[in-house]
Structure formats: structure tokens, C-alpha cells
Design a protein around this nucleic acid. Structure first.
Length: 497
RNA sequence: GUCCCCAUCGUCUAGUCAGGUCCAGGACAUCGGCCUUUCACGCCGACAACACCGGUUCGAAUCCGGUUGGGGACGCCA
């Protein structure tokens, strides 16, 4: 059994989007499962649109996702000579031919055909030029492209798709496609096959939008006398209006980078992407990396396209709810040390990181994350909603300010009183902090909830959160006392009332 | 227009190849309840789908044909 060799060949004309990431993921999973190799090949033959930033963006995106490759990145343009030589060989063997039809003429023909609702393919004008005719045109310096000569056969060409089954197409439906531009630059269909043959690719997992390319490429493999790889055409990802997702129409929401910048856990995104078009066959939906590598299979990839359920301007969900839900799942179940490292990065970005969190305050750090993680959706929430646990410059949100503080004028006096009592407490623990609050409420003849919720907002800035007394103990005596004493700052100055 | 692919809850899907165990299971979302000083988490429950028509069969989500719908391709882009 020969080693499996897979490739991910992005064209660097934009950022890595979730469709591309999913393709990369499936290839990666299959390579890892079979102990094979994954090759990264940058298909940059469209020099007009390829950019360096795009290459970097793709590399960064893959690295963030943890999709590592074994060879590459190779750059397709580095193999231009080989591509041209291959085309030349095909011409010499009579398997391809020079076509002198100009782009203008072909464009006109295409438009006419479209208007007349006729097939759009090339009419093969130059296919049967004699050697003499070709010589004349070449002498006149007419520019030409090289077209592949679809074999003169009846019946169908085809291949066995690992996902879709047998795919066939009638020979007469297949166009004599261009393999070399008039400027001498070889084109995708040829480059791609030439590279896959050289890189000894055994499995090609790509989107269903390549199906018609594959028919043509199968013929190219035959002409180049190379063995056919296994093809697997995965379903496309569409938007809620069933249009193909693209940078152009969807913007950053489909960029992998967006998820990194919005506090997604890389593996959570992989897990979500894996489920978009594949399932294990049972009810299992959460997979560790090892589990997914083990259980993934080409046969279980769906045939039908799936919808990325994202609604623009949805106030509750900034992206597909299932993606968020999977992210939340990892957030609250993952190993606390691992989560700690991820949050460390976030805290550092916000200048909230304290080296003690890695040493003498490590236990406190982990306990705190554990206390607050259940309510959060992304890694970013730890430094925004959870800011009060790490710093004093947290924001007091407007809604709780009104509801929990301003509504009860008395808190302005009560909370400092409570602060004094807390300051004198020898054991600042769950039982004592609660006892003090209840005694105070009793004495003042008010509901404990008023003090508790007022305190919640004064101490964390939030409307809701973990159990109040857990919060107090976590944030610590000194900080709590200071924040309670400072309650007056939350009320408007008297002269402005 | 031509060719190709696809079709189960709002979304992701199980079940289709080997027809009966499926008046269709799970997850997310939504709604309700429990828990709770808050909000979540968690737990319990509800809502919700076999695109349509015909055929084969004792029996069809499952097989066959057609219709409709959706998607893709039809570049000197990749």
C-alpha cells in the first residue's frame, strides 16, 4: 500500500475563508488518518490577482486552525517551465493544438450563442488546421493559445467519485479547453494536473464546483499517461439565500481571521466546520482532534450542500448559532490549564496579565476562570464582561446601573456601611460575607436582594454573574471594600439632579 | 440555454446502498418548566421535516420514473 498524499492548493487572491478552511480540514483529516502527507501548494499562476498578503493570510489562518502540512508551501509559478514543457509535449504528440482564434472573436461567438440559447463551447475552428495553415499563421506572427484536443470518441468520459459515485459526461459535451494562454502562460487545468502528478497526489478532495474540471482533468491524466488519483467532491457551503459564500458578498464574516479575532477556540471552529457536510453516523457532535482524525471518512461526507446559517445584523448571534454553541461548549468543558493559556493571550493584549497568575496566583487564576466561564461565549468575553475580575477600570453597564443602583438611592449610604463591616471581617469567606449582608438587610428592613444586586453591579459592573459571594471571595476583600466605598461615583452629582 | 449534481424539522444532520424495528432519532435555535438573591450552566419538556406526482411491493423516507425546486459548471480565473 503506497502512502496517501493530499494537497491543499489555494489561490492567493483573498483571505482564507471558511469554505477553503473546511476543504483544508478534510484533506488534513484524511492525511492524518491514513498516515499520509499533506502538501500545501500556492496556486499563484493568476499573477494579476495573487498577492503576498493573501499568501500570508492563508498561512496564518491554517496555522491558527492547527492544520499543519508536511510539504510546501510550493509555489505553482516556480514550475512554469515544467507546465510549458508538458503543453509542448502534448502538442507534439497531437493531443493538443494551437488555436489562433482571437479573444474578441470568441467573445462575440459566446455572446451570440448565449443570445440564441445555444451551447457555449468552442467550435473547434482551429482543431483541423493543416501543418501548412499553421505555418502561415505562425509566420504572420498571429498569437495563439494551446487547446487540449478532446479525444474523438463516442460514449462518455468519467471517474468514480468517493462521495458522489460514478460521474460521467458525454465526450461531445466536453470543450477543447485552453491549456496555455496566448502570452505563453499555462493555465490552471494543466498546471494543476502537472503538479498533482509530480507531487504524486493520490487523493483529491475539493469542492463540487470542480466537477466539470475533473472530467477534463481525467482526460489530461490519460494523455499524460499518469495514474488517476481518487476524487472526492465535497458539498459547497451556501448562505441562507443559497448563494455560494464569498468574500465579495459576505465580507469578513466568512474569513477564518474573523473567528480568531472574535475569540473563537481554533479547534471549536474546526469541529463546527467538520460537521458542515459530514457526520459520524451516530449522535456524536463534539470530537477531540484525535477522535475526529480517527472517525472521519470520505464515504460519510454528504452529497448535498449545506447552509452557513448566518444572519446579518442578528443582535443575538454574530455568526452561525451552532458555531457559537460549539465554541461555548469547549469554553466551559476544556481543560482549565489549556483555557488558562488562551486567556493569558487575551489578558496580555489588554494589559491585564499579571505574571503571578502563572505562579503563586495560578490557583486563583484557574478558579476565577472556572467561576466565570459558564456565562461566556468567546475568549474575548473574559477581558470585556470579565474585566472586573482582573482590573479596576471595568465598565459599569447602563442597564444594571439603572436597575440595581440608581433605582435604590439608599445604596449610596448602605454600601459604604457594608464596606466597613467587610473591612473588619477576619474571615472573608462565603459564609461570613453572606451573613453580614443578611444581617444588614435585616437591620435596614429591606430585601437582601436589593443589597446583593446593588453590590453585584458596584463590584462587577454587570447585571448578572456567578453567585455573589463567590464573586466577593474571588475578587478579594480589599478590592471589594474599595469598590463598595466608591459607590457614590455612580450617582450623578447633586447639583445636576 | 446546455450539461452535471443535489432534495428529511428554521439550520446542521441520523435513517437511503442491503424496503418493515421510523405516525422519522439527535444537535443548534425557539418556547415552557425545574434549579437560583441575579444571569447563565445543568436537567426536564414542547414545537418542528421525509418537495410533489405516479409506479414496483403485502409494506416505500428508503427502489424506479417523472415533475418541481435548489446548486454548480459552461473564462486566454483558480
Amino acid at each position: 500500500m503506497t502512502e496517501t498524499r493530499l494537497r491543499f492548493p489555494p489561490s492567493p487572491t483573498g483571505y482564507l475563508h471558511i469554505g477553503g478552511a473546511r476543504t483544508a480540514l478534510y484533506n488534513w483529516l484524511f492525511a492524518r488518518q491514513t498516515g499520509g502527507k499533506l502538501i500545501l501548494r500556492i496556486e499563484d499562476t493568476d499573477t494579476g490577482r495573487s498577492t503576498q498578503e493573501s499568501i500570508q493570510g492563508i498561512l496564518d489562518g491554517l496555522e491558527w486552525l492547527g492544520i499543519d502540512f508536511d510539504e510546501g508551501p510550493y509555489f505553482q509559478t516556480d514550475f512554469a517551465e515544467e507546465h510549458t514543457a508538458t503543453a509542448q509535449k502534448l502538442v507534439e504528440e497531437g493531443l493538443a493544438y494551437k488555436c489562433f482564434c482571437t479573444k474578441e472573436v470568441l467573445d462575440t461567438k459566446r455572446e451570440t450563442a448565449l443570445a440564441a440559447k445555444k451551447p457555449l463551447g468552442y467550435d473547434r475552428t482551429c482543431r483541423n488546421l493543416t501543418a501548412a495553415e499553421i505555418a502561415v499563421k505562425e509566420q504572420e506572427d498571429n498569437p495563439y493559445v494551446i487547446r487540449f484536443k478532446i479525444p474523438e470518441r463516442t460514449g462518455t468520459a468519467g471517474y468514480n467519485d468517493k462521495i458522489l459515485g460514478r460521474i460521467e459526461s458525454d465526450y461531445k459535451e466536453i470543450d477543447d479547453f485552453v491549456i496555455v494562454r496566448s502570452n505563453g502562460k499555462p493555465l490552471y487545468l494543466l498546471c494543476n494536473v502537472t503538479d498533482d502528478i509530480r507531487d504524486k497526489i493520490t487523493h483529491i478532495i475539493r469542492g463540487q464546483d470542480h466537477m466539470t474540471n475533473t472530467i477534463k482533468q481525467v482526460l489530461l491524466y490519460e494523455a499524460l499517461k499518469a495514474p488517476l488519483p481518487v476524487f472526492a467532491h465535497m458539498p459547497l457551503t451556501l448562505d441562507t439565500k443559497k448563494a455560494k459564500i464569498s468574500k465579495r458578498s459576505h465580507g469578513e464574516i466568512v474569513a477564518v481571521q474573523f473567528y480568531r479575532d472574535h475569540g473563537f477556540i481554533p479547534w471549536a471552529l474546526n469541529n463546527f466546520l467538520a460537521l458542515l457536510g459530514w457526520s459520524a453516523g451516530d449522535d456524536k457532535e463534539i470530537f477531540s482532534k484525535e477522535e475526529l482524525i480517527k472517525e472521519f471518512s470520505l464515504e460519510r461526507i454528504n452529497k448535498s450542500s449545506s447552509i452557513f446559517n448566518y444572519h446579518k445584523n442578528d443582535p443575538k448571534f454574530f455568526t452561525d448559532p451552532k458555531a457559537i454553541s460549539i465554541n461555548e461548549h469547549y469554553l466551559r468543558t476544556m481543560d482549565i490549564t489549556e483555557l488558562g493559556s488562551m486567556i493569558q493571550i487575551e489578558l496580555k493584549k489588554e494589559n491585564l496579565w499579571d505574571e503571578k497568575y502563572g505562579n503563586e496566583k495560578k490557583e486563583w487564576y484557574h478558579n476565577t476562570l472556572n467561576l466565570i466561564r459558564d456565562r461566556f461565549h468567546t475568549l474575548k468575553d473574559f477581558t470585556s464582561l470579565g474585566r472586573a475580575y482582573f482590573a479596576d477600570d471595568f465598565v459599569v453597564e447602563e442597564k444594571p446601573l439603572k436597575k440595581n443602583i440608581l433605582k435604590h438611592e439608599g445604596l449610596k449610604q448602605w454600601l459604604p456601611v457594608l464596606a466597613d463591616k467587610y473591612e473588619q471581617l477576619e474571615n472573608f469567606n462565603l459564609e461570613e460575607t453572606e451573613r453580614v449582608v443578611r444581617e444588614l438587610a435585616d437591620k435596614l428592613e429591606i430585601k437582601p436582594g436589593i443589597i446583593i444586586n446593588g453590590m453585584r453591579t458596584a463590584v462587577t459592573g454587570q447585571l448578572a454573574g456567578p453567585s455573589m459571594f463567590d464573586i466577593l471571595v474571588t475578587i478579594g476583600q480589599k478590592r471589594v471594600v474599595d469598590r463598595l466605598k466608591n459607590i457614590g461615583r455612580l450617582y450623578p452629582p447633586p447639583d445636576e439632579q
